[in-house]
Amino acid sequence: MKAPPFGYVKARELGQVFDLLDQHGDDAKILAGGQSLIPSLNLRLSRPAVLIDINAIADLQGIRETADSVIVGALTRHVVLETSPVIARHVPLVAQAMPQIAHPAIRNRGTIGGSLAFADPAAELPACALALEATFILRNRSDERRVPASGFFHGLFETDLRPGEVLAAIEFPKAMAGHRFAFAELARRHGDYAMIGMAAAAPQPGTLRLAYFGVADRPVLASAAAACLLRDGPQGLEAACAALAGDLSPSGDLNAGPQTKLHLAAVLLRRAIPSLFAPA
């Protein structure tokens, strides 16, 4: 099918984006990489009056290092994250997740900001952001707002973005010495949305965040399971697996019912233990 009619504006700078958002409100959609938005247009599931193309906005580009963080511009394409030495060194969880996201031609075009703002609960990057306690940098015409990942995802394709706001960048804490991480997902076919996946991060000893995706309307932290492992180390695995039933109450989809997802959640956790507790 062909997309329904809409208008299009290629924004040159953020101020223009805010003008257009003010003018069109909910009838406007921001076009970043387009790898989720354009399919929804071609399916006629989305009917914006106007698309605001932000691809040319320099403020939203690039990967920047600070002393203890990496700030990734919202327009950074997946392929750039995948091949960035900065990401590989300082945000290795994201580097490991990237090849799992769709296929090369999609990663050449898709952006981190687009993926996070789209908030597909089966997608990899939201879970990575949640596991890493990334900070979402949201801008409107006058302010910048910093929202922790745990507060950004509100539900199925729903985020903390307010009218007139744009996701400008994502700040990831740099991996510290002694950090551990694991990423795994189960998809029927390479590049498909996952039946279930897990992004796990232990930035320093005594910390652990297990973020599952493909289980609910947003990525979910398995806090009780993580607590078991923090308390007892690898010996806490069985308790942690049992605790997943409380942490997650997965809804079923075409490929896996709730029980299957819960079972697979434990399998992923079990398989992540060697990475998460690898000796220094």
Binding site: L186, R188, M195, G252, N255, A256, G257, Q259, T260, H263
Partner: peptide, 17 residues
């Protein structure tokens, strides 16, 4: 033969309703 149908046959998960 799907992952779920194999897990169900193995008794690792219950049959989906």
């Amino acid at each position: 033969f799907t992952p779920e149908s194999i897990l169900t046959a193995l008794g690792r998960v219950g049959a989906r309703v």
